[in-house]
Amino acid sequence: MNIDAIRNGIVIDHIKAGDGMRIYNFLNLGALDCSVALIKNASSTKAGKKDIIKVDRVPDIDLNALGFIDPNITINIIRDSVRVEKYHPELPMKMTNILICKNPRCITTTEQELPHVFVLTDREKHEYRCVYCESRAPAL
């Protein structure tokens, strides 16, 4: 399979096989007008299979939020066709307007312009809670 090399953008590698579309949707990549490739079930020496996403632009989003979905993925930043940075996203301490609180009793359900803020409360369990009502974050 031939996919154009990226000049300036990102490659999200080592995505757990089957999770690629979740990350594609989470980053709202469908709305971009640049080249975007989602490769499913690529062969992986470590995991057997993996998904990969290539985007020919650096999206304007905190990519560390991807750590909430899968902390094992690798983010590669490409500039002028050269990889300039490679890292695993860390679990962000705080996520604003990335998750929506599902608790019907939470103040966010009635204060329309209030940002939805979740903070990391248990790093081992990857647990986030709403700063207002302390409800556990919904899965993405």
Partner: peptide, 8 residues
């Protein structure tokens, strides 16, 4: 009645 209202 809403949880988190006093924080807001």
């Amino acid at each position: 009645p809403k949880e988190g209202a006093p924080l807001v």
